[in-house]
Simulated scan of single mutants.
Amino acid sequence: MFHYRKAELHDVAQLQDLINSAYRSQNSQSWTSECSMVDGDRIDALQLDCLLAKIDFELWVLEEIEGCAQDEMPHHLILGCIGIQFEANTAEIGTFAVLPELQNKGLGKTLLDFAEGRIKMRNEIIQIVMYVLHLRKELIDYYLRRGYQRTLQTEQYPLHLNVGRPIQDIHLIQLIKFL
């Protein structure tokens, strides 16, 4: 059984493993890996703690509940997550990950649909923003098919955020979806 809920502090270790494996592991099923472009962890426990403490940020998890037999304690396995940062009339999507072994099965699409639905519930939000590594053509193409538009805005790779070290020349491009 799958369901969505907001991430909590007790999820930090599982989320850290999920996000780092989705972005930095070499897995034949993963199409989100940046391991050939960026070295090091994508996120650490302290960064997750800080995100979860923010008032204007929501981190949603898609989880499966296992072991629901009468004599078993349920085990909550986080399959994916997606973050939404709210600011004025904009929502930024990030911290978006699906377990590598479950990628290409529609879970990412489901998570993105869920996040966009949450965003649309806020009448003041007029656009969704996200940033993608410029070399991630297949990912950019996916978002373009989803109604996002590439803007002319680019940003340097955020070394100051401690999200890994580029091993090649990369930057971020901005994508926007108007509501």
Rank of each mutant, 00 (worst) to 15 (best):
M1H: 03
M1E: 06
H3Y: 14
R5Y: 04
R5G: 07
K6A: 08
A7S: 08
H10Q: 13
V12A: 07
V12C: 05
Q14R: 02
L18K: 04
N20K: 02
A22W: 03
Q26Y: 12
N27R: 11
S28Q: 12
S30E: 06
W31Y: 15
W31A: 12
T32H: 15
S36T: 14
M37L: 14
M37D: 15
M37P: 12
D39Y: 11
R42V: 00
D44H: 05
A45D: 15
L48A: 02
C50W: 09
D56V: 00
F57S: 03
E58I: 14
V61G: 07
L62Y: 04
L62S: 03
E63L: 12
E63F: 04
E66R: 08
C68M: 11
Q70N: 10
D71N: 13
M73K: 15
P74R: 01
P74G: 01
H76S: 13
C81G: 02
E87I: 14
E87D: 11
T90Q: 14
A91Q: 08
A91K: 15
T95D: 13
V98C: 01
G106V: 10
G108W: 01
T110N: 12
L112S: 04
K120A: 12
M121D: 14
M121R: 03
N123F: 07
Q127A: 11
Y131C: 08
E138K: 15
E138V: 15
G147K: 03
G147Q: 02
Q149R: 14
R150M: 10
Q156E: 06
H160N: 10
I167E: 01
I167F: 00
I167H: 02
D169E: 08
I170W: 03
